[in-house]
Design a binder for these strands. Structure first.
Length: 743
RNA sequence: GGGCACGUAGCUCAGUUGGUUAGAGCGUUUCGUUGACAUCGAAAAGGUCGGAGGUUCGAAUCCUCCCGGGCCCACCA
């Protein structure tokens, strides 16, 4: 053995030998309960970051259960990641001086597809470098035809059950990304803005958005507000356009904010929308999908929102309608992806009625059929969210993803808005009834970019000729599914729901391990789909792991320049050192700090382990391997021998129970302590004299303890333990990965 | 605005149902060690367990209040 451990000489070779041996692929054994984990699918297009390193927790579980003899499946995959990927791709386009509007949707989709294909193998190779014992024969990609087929089937089933509807509601719209988002995809930041007090005739209002006054349809006050009692039912006047609107009451109004009177703009604010719905107010739209002003006095037409605000204020001032301006610190919704301020907008979209789906998913956790670990903090988060869940907007106005399987007959829906590139490649927009005078259906279809149907369109769930008019001018909805609509069905689609053998054997899976940040996005949705489609929760345990931060406790981010690339770390210290660094000291639910000093310490531990092996092996060879294998009945044991054997038995018990309880941090710490300080510092030092005296019993104990230790450490540090294991003369000739867990 | 955890050695954190001198890693200091390992060993320094009060034979651990930063949720215009 070399004097120091060299991971580079070992890791690739060992991984290949595992793959070749087929150890990652479980044998379906009827009657024997399998152990199954689904890898939280990384984005197909992205290389791994340090957070993905925490998949090591899943690998520890998988390797442990495999050694216990369970048919163990850890299933890998990759996600097309709709918005994320399209965003990255558009940035690339813009560097090339192009934009998504230069392509028809078919071409754009195919180009993104090819782009992702080029990168899809990268993170697969990286997962292998980290030593993850994933069953690559069952690798899945979210855009595989079989997966999409199941997803579309789910949509139809939801539709049939009355759980999908087209709703015109206020949605979170990003004018930069050009798409609506679900509530979860909106981030909030505090901003210093201004509160403008405006004269609305008999009443004054306060607003942060004077540019939307043209879309006001009422002024609302709290019914309990005595100041305005006499004014309710009377008319207020919108300045600049002198339009009369009613003064109404609503309990949502805060008496203490501003003047206690709110201008109601249902089309551009969520609260106002709600008030509008209750009071059956009309909705006036003054901001379009590009973030430009529309439907208002000509002067402001086509202005950006911020420009319009500036101008409106100037004009209000001139007319003497601006009473005062106060600075205001408040929270503003921004696009989680590009940070553009979210515009609440009225838009018809496809929604899933979620309450009926949430109900069994709540019950399952409440009854303990699915356990969340650590329970205390995250169960509450789960309940809070699930019990207050809002209908799920699944429409995304992007191309990267499967289109929603809805088809519109253009002749029956002549008001459909269409964007397309004509034969010459010029962009054309308009309602179909106008477009059809100039362009053939074929030309529109070939150059189609997007369409948007109205609130109550006539539609069909297939592309057959129109049932009503028998016309063949049919176009599919261009909205695509929210990515989580697909990944939410991952436990079903990857296992071959409803009839696949894998599904029958491996569903429900055992553990789902993830960071809390996608608990709602992903885990909650999988729970709901699991019940809806399979009638059973998709997992028995949801394990929430901690977040990786840098040495100082800061979140790793490019802008802070504190990102540590897991692959650089593997290169420098070896995969085993990184793996154990990611669990050592990582308390449940808290952050895990990763930095050079910790990685070095863990690298030192791998080397220590190596040298313990080297010492024992050298001494075994000195006596020409004449050492008998340890046996509980071995005679001639000293007091020290019996003590260390007792401590080993204790360690085995402890580590086993800690793994079962998801306390990998404590398991690692115990192993570290035992190996380095109890075994190496004390027992090995003690053994030296006996070895010199030709004592074979002590060598037999040394080897026994060490081989047991290798087994216990294998889930954490698979490469080095496997490598040393195979160098040792031993009774069990199998590779370590499938050796039985010590008892 | 509502909620959830947290505050233990210079730094990062353990401390399971309250029970003998409160632990680990890294860092610091001293000493040692040329045949497993300098990516080593031995030892030491360093904590009135955020603060105050309470329950108890006994509190880092349970209760109340205060201080400090963290996170999640929410329609404050």
């Amino acid at each position: 053995m070399e004097k120091t451990y060299d991971p580079k000489a070992v890791e690739a070779k060992i991984y290949q030998s595992w793959e070749k041996g087929g150890y990652f692929t479980p044998k379906i054994t009827p009657g024997k309960k399998p152990f199954t984990i689904l890898l939280p699918l990384p984005n197909a297009n992205d290389p791994l970051h340090m957070g993905h390193g925490l998949f090591v927790i899943e690998d520890i579980l998988a390797r442990y259960r495999r050694m216990l003899g369970d048919p163990t499946l850890w299933l890998p995959g990759a996600d097309h990641a709709g918005i994320e990927t399209q965003y990255v791709f558009e940035k690339k386009l813009s560097r090339e001086g192009k934009s998504r509007f230069d392509f028809d949707r078919k071409t754009l989709y195919q180009t993104i597809f090819d782009f992702v294909e080029q990168n899809r193998d990268i993170n697969r190779q990286q997962l292998k470098k980290l030593g993850f014992s994933l069953d690559w024969t069952r690798y899945h990609y979210s855009l595989e035809p079989e997966i999409i087929k199941t997803v579309l089937h789910t949509f139809r089933k939801l539709h049939q059950d009355g759980l999908v509807y087209r709703g015109e509601r206020i949605v979170n719209f990003c004018t930069h990304c050009g798409t609506a988002f679900s509530d979860l995809e909106v981030d909030y930041v505090e901003k210093n803005e201004f509160l403008y007090y405006l004269n609305y005739g008999p009443i004054s209002i306060a607003t942060t958005r004077p540019e939307t006054i043209f879309a006001d349809v009422a002024v609302a006050v709290n019914p309990k507000d005595k100041r305005y009692k006499n004014l309710v039912g009377q008319k207020a006047v919108i300045p600049l356009i002198d339009k009369e609107i009613s003064i109404i009451t609503d309990g949502l109004i805060d008496v203490n904010f501003g003047t206690g009177a709110l201008k109601v703009t249902p089309a551009h604010d969520a609260t106002d929308f709600e008030i509008g719905q209750k009071n059956k107010l009309e909705t006036l739209v003054v901001i379009d999908k590009n973030g430009r002003m529309t439907n208002l006095p000509e002067k402001y037409l086509e202005m950006t929102v911020s420009k319009a605000r500036e101008e409106t204020i100037k004009d209000l001032g001139k007319e003497g309608k601006l009473i005062k301006i106060e600075p205001l610190r408040h929270t503003v919704g921004i696009c989680y992806r590009c940070k553009t301020t979210i515009e609440p907008m009225i838009m018809p979209q496809w929604f899933v009625k979620i309450k009926p789906l949430a109900k069994p998913a709540i019950e399952a956790v409440r009854k303990g059929q699915t356990k969340i670990v650590p329970k205390k903090r995250f169960e509450k988060m789960y309940f809070d969210w699930m019990e207050n869940i809002h209908d799920w907007n699944i429409s995304r106005q992007i191309v990267w993803g499967p289109q929603i399987p809805i088809w519109y007959c253009l002749d029956c829906n002549p008001d459909i808005l269409i964007n397309f590139l004509d034969k010459k490649g010029d962009k054309v927009s308009g309602q179909y009834q106008k477009l059809k005078e100039k362009y053939s259906f074929e030309e529109i279809k070939n150059g189609l970019q997007s369409l948007s149907a109205g609130k109550n369109p006539i539609y069909s769930l297939d592309d057959k000729p129109c049932r009503k008019c028998h016309g063949k001018n049919i176009l599919q909805e261009t909205d695509t599914f929210d990515t989580w609509f697909l990944s939410g069905q991952w436990p079903l689609t990857t296992l071959g729901y409803p009839n696949g053998n894998d599904f029958k054997y491996f569903y429900p899976t055992s553990v789902l391990d993830t960071l809390w940040d996608i608990l709602f996005f992903w885990v909650a949705r999988m729970m709901m789909f699991g019940f809806y489609l399979a009638g059973k929760a998709p997992f028995e345990v949801i394990h929430i792991h901690c977040r990786v931060v840098d040495e100082k406790g800061q979140k790793m981010s490019k802008s802070k320049e504190n990102v540590i690339d897991p692959m650089d770390t593997v290169e420098k210290y070896g995969a085993d050192a990184l793996r154990i660094a990611l669990v050592f000291g990582a308390a449940p639910g808290s952050d895990i700090h990763i930095g050079e000093s910790k990685l070095q310490a863990m690298r030192n531990f791998t080397n220590k382990l190596w040298n313990i092996g080297r010492f024992i092996l050298m001494n075994l060879e000195l006596v020409a391997n004449q050492v008998p294998f340890y046996d509980p009945k071995t005679t001639g044991l000293t007091k020290e021998d019996r003590e260390i054997l007792k401590d080993l038995a204790l360690l085995i018990k402890k580590v086993t129970s800690l793994i079962e309880r998801y306390r990998f941090d404590l398991a690692a710490e115990n192993l570290y302590q035992f190996a380095w300080h109890r075994f190496a510092d004390e027992y090995i030092e003690y053994s030296k004299d006996r070895i010199k005296g030709g004592d074979l019993v002590v060598l037999s104990v040394l080897r026994h303890i060490y081989l047991s230790l290798l087994k216990l450490l294998h889930p954490f540090m698979p490469f080095i333990t496997e490598e040393i294991w195979q160098k040792f003369p031993r009774e069990n000739k199998e590779p370590l990965i499938i050796s039985p867990w010590p008892e």
